[in-house]
């Protein structure tokens, strides 16, 4: 008799993902859902979907969901959590959402150490609007709005949000993970689980940045996109735990 060792988590609905082939959003959704299953929190979780490709996240999770305006998910999460402190609140945000239009909201939610978990998907480009430059696009990266490559002289350098937020005293947990190989995926799930666990334990704000591919707007196959992420993104965006309240001496 064979045992099921890998199955669709219960915290995901049956709705097929709306993402392009090879896009990592689906993996991240699944990891969040697996964590919700393992911590048995789906019935108490409220998720906040952003503006962008993952606006449709509200269709995919088996918990209460709300769609926030672009960049404002941490403020919306703050409002929800202050009214319902016993619920688990997470935001799901892309790089344009979190690191550009919503920079103020993420910095201040982190600084207040709101007891929320932020899943930050960094794919170095704007997906839904068709491949424009993100605040996290790499130096020299060609996008619709940096057609000659991102020029740091006029467009600035890509923003490292984990490092930036780690300068704050208050957040409980900040980590960057990737998904390009199984070992990374296992680590990513552990980080996401820690983020949710810290919220359950009332430790404060947690943010997990997930380096992610956008094969469609990068103009690469999913396999090439994974290689590009490993070769180009990870050297600039190191995978690490930047802040862990448990390890403060």
């Amino acid at each position: 008799m064979m045992k099921k060792v890998f199955a669709r988590p219960k915290s995901l609905t049956e709705v097929p993902f709306t993402y392009c082939p090879g896009c990592h959003h689906g993996i991240i959704h699944r990891l969040i859902a697996e964590v919700m299953d393992e911590l048995n929190i789906a019935q108490d979780t409220i998720g906040i979907a952003p503006v962008g490709c993952s606006v449709f996240a509200y269709l995919f999770f088996n918990c209460d969901m709300i769609v926030a305006a672009h960049g404002r998910a941490p403020a919306v999460a703050t409002g929800i959590k202050r009214v319902k402190p016993n619920n688990i609140v997470f935001t799901y945000q892309g790089d344009g959402d979190l690191a550009s239009i919503g920079t103020a909201e993420i910095v201040h939610a982190a600084n207040r150490s709101e007891k929320i978990t932020v899943i930050f998907v960094n794919n170095a480009i704007y997906g839904m609007t068709g491949g424009q430059m993100a605040p996290t696009s790499l130096e020299g990266q060609v996008t619709q709005t940096s057609p000659y490559g991102r020029d740091p002289k006029t467009m600035g350098m890509p923003i490292r949000m984990c490092e930036l937020l780690s300068t704050l005293n208050s957040p409980a947990y900040i980590a960057r993970v990737a998904l390009t190989k199984p070992a990374y995926i296992i680590r990513a799930k552990k980080a996401i689980k820690k983020g949710f666990q810290y919220q359950i334990d009332g430790k404060g704000f947690s943010l997990i940045e997930v380096l992610s591919t956008c094969p469609t707007n990068w103009g690469l196959s999913p396999k090439e996109a994974n290689e590009w992420l490993e070769k180009k993104m990870i050297p600039y965006y190191p995978l690490a735990e930047f802040k862990n309240v448990e390890e403060v001496s």
């Binding site: 709300i66 404002r72 703050t78 409002g79 319902k84 103020a104």
Partner: peptide, 22 residues
């Protein structure tokens, strides 16, 4: 009570709090 980082954040906190029934 939160003195928010901006009026934009304030109204979005209102949006969240209202959605949660406050």
């Amino acid at each position: 009570f939160i003195q928010s980082e901006s009026e934009i954040a304030a109204i979005n906190m209102v949006y969240g709090a209202a959605a949660a029934g406050g």
